[in-house]
């Protein structure tokens, strides 16, 4: 699904944010990208959404070489990608419903499609009662749920999240992780960048750890949790917390 080979990113001649990293993520995986601030997580995420260009190396997503996507085609590439940010990045002038609908309007979705899909996805994310609220009337956790609904309404094959729980308390974070897990269960590949190590430990999924732009850990075969239902997942997460 995602393949980095020898990817390097330098912001200036002397300091490199990514120093030749290589890894592969396979369809349907749930992967954490961890590391301290400045380890290169966010740079890797920005390279994935083509907000930045690598200095060297090759990035492939769903078989496509990102370098070969011309600038005018970037929006079409991004539509195959659900993206979630630490600061939610919702449109402040639009209601919850309109924020999610915008992702469909961008792709040329008609009114009927919007009427069909938006309420569904908002129900899935537990926001049915907040349809006509504006983002500043919602809690952080609710705003992040709107962002996830927006990212997933097109059912992209890949969802990437940059510090999705960075601004949230532990209990709310579990709720968000549960939601991401549920999305992963539908077959969507999920990549989450985070510095929340305790969360990662509890999840027991594949972990790629970055430090100073290099991969220092990639536990493909480590203590992997068996496939479990969302409910089992939530129970385990909560019990581990206590």
């Amino acid at each position: 699904m995602i393949s980095f080979s020898g990817v390097e990113k330098r912001y200036s001649a002397t300091d490199s944010a990514l120093d030749g990293i290589s890894f592969d993520i396979f369809p349907g995986e749930f992967v954490f990208l961890v590391g301290h601030s400045g380890s290169g997580k966010s740079t890797a995420m920005k390279l994935l959404i083509k907000e930045l260009e690598p200095t060297a190396g090759e990035i492939r997503v769903a078989g496509r070489d990102l370098q070969k996507i011309p600038r005018p085609r970037v929006p079409y590439y991004r539509r195959n990608l659900g993206v979630i940010f630490q600061d939610y990045k919702l449109l402040p002038n639009r209601t919850v419903y309109e924020n999610v609908a915008y992702a469909l309007q961008v792709t040329g979705g008609g009114r009927r499609e919007i009427r069909d899909k938006v309420p569904d996805i908002l129900r899935l994310t537990g926001l049915s009662t907040k349809l006509h609220n504006y983002p500043d009337q919602l809690s952080g956790g609710e705003q992040q749920r709107v962002a996830i609904a927006r990212a997933f309404v097109n059912h992209p094959p890949l969802l990437i999240a940059d510090e999705p729980t960075g601004n949230l308390d532990p209990e709310t974070s579990i709720g968000i992780m549960q939601l991401l897990y549920r999305i992963n269960q539908t077959g969507t590949t999920v990549l989450v960048a985070t510095h929340d190590v305790s969360m990662v430990d509890k999840m027991r999924r594949r972990v790629i750890e970055l430090s100073e732009g290099r991969i220092v850990r990639d536990e493909q075969s480590a203590a992997y949790a068996a496939a479990e239902s969302t409910r089992e997942f939530a129970i385990r997460m909560r019990s581990a917390q206590g």
Binding site: I49, L91, V106
Partner: peptide
């Protein structure tokens, strides 16, 4: 707002 629109895939 424009930045967000771009990230959602608007041309």
């Amino acid at each position: 707002e424009v930045e967000v629109m771009k990230l959602v895939g608007a041309t």
